[in-house]
């Protein structure tokens, strides 16, 4: 691939998603874009770049961006945030008036495993939530993964990653060799296409936000911008979960670590101002 063409693809992808592609990721372009080249009848990545140059914001640019964003996920990924959530949800429920809805956001939700993991915990907590309903919103930039998330249908391989067998039989129904999330869990979750670089205010406020393994792909200015916008969506007593390799250090002073809970962040208490 001609060097200038790599940079052109990288520029298009960064403008759309914030994803930073360094030249060592050329192999990733080759493997991930191969199906797209075939579909579009394009012989080479250079031919693709030529098409992108003419239409840097059309459907092709969108498809390229989707193909290059990472969709890896699994149920209860990393474990610890979900253990923390199990304690947090009843506390938030107790702090809300009867009839209140607890809103959880799975940002960059991919195929929905994170959102459905939250739904499983909410369902298992049952009466501990004192009648407060839980509403989960999953958002992603990629249409294809969202369609899968909405279906809630997972392969035998996927349901064996991160799920205990007890949870599989409790929360899934078997359908011709695959496994579909139970209707009561699917009723809790909604999936919406949303770009984290866009205005996030229309999404409303959330009691809990999962935004894990997203920031690692962004450059520092974009990281800071996205983190600030996400923090603005968090309820005063809410919690934001970041990925294991992510931190707010040096990016924002609007979030402080929750003590004793790795990867969990909250808004600083404003007690000093409340005099």
């Amino acid at each position: 691939m001609i060097a200038g063409n790599f940079e052109l693809v990288a520029r298009v992808v960064k403008a759309r998603s914030g994803l930073v592609l360094t030249p060592d990721k050329l192999y990733m372009l080759e493997t991930r874009l191969a199906p797209l080249l075939r579909r579009e009848g394009l012989p080479t990545l250079d031919a693709l770049a030529a098409r992108l140059r003419d239409a840097p914001s059309g459907p092709l640019a969108e498809a390229v961006t989707e193909a290059l964003t990472t969709n890896e996920t699994s149920f209860f990924r990393d474990g610890a945030p979900f253990e923390h959530l199990r304690g947090l949800l009843p506390a938030l429920a107790a702090a809300r008036p009867p009839g209140a809805v607890l809103r959880v956001w799975s940002a960059a939700c991919s195929t929905g495993q994170e959102a459905y993991s939250v739904a499983m915990i909410a369902e298992e907590l049952g009466p501990e939530l004192a009648g407060r309903k839980v509403e989960i919103l999953g958002t992603d930039i990629a249409q294809e993964v969202l369609a899968r998330a909405r279906e809630g249908l997972f392969t035998q391989f996927e349901v064996q990653r991160g799920l205990s067998i007890q949870r599989l039989v409790r929360h899934f129904r078997q359908e011709a060799g695959r496994w579909r999330v139970a209707p009561e869990l699917r009723a809790m979750a909604r999936f919406l296409r949303w770009n984290l670089l866009d205005d996030l205010r229309p999404l409303g406020r959330f009691d809990v936000i999962f935004c894990r393994n997203v920031l690692i792909y962004l450059d520092p200015p974009t990281k800071a911008r996205v983190l600030a916008a996400v923090a603005e969506r968090l309820a005063d007593d809410g919690v934001l979960y970041l990925g294991g390799a992510e931190t707010v250090l040096g990016l924002t002073d609007r979030l402080v670590p929750v003590s004793g809970a790795r990867g969990a962040y909250a808004l600083p208490r404003v007690a000093a101002l409340a005099v």
């Binding site: 205990s164 067998i165 039989v169």
Partner: peptide
Amino acid sequence: ILEALAAGAQEYVMKPFDEAILRDK
């Protein structure tokens, strides 16, 4: 699966499996 759980199995791997699945289980 339900039969095996009722008989006292703690976990259940469906073949084919790989290293990641076995580790998770």
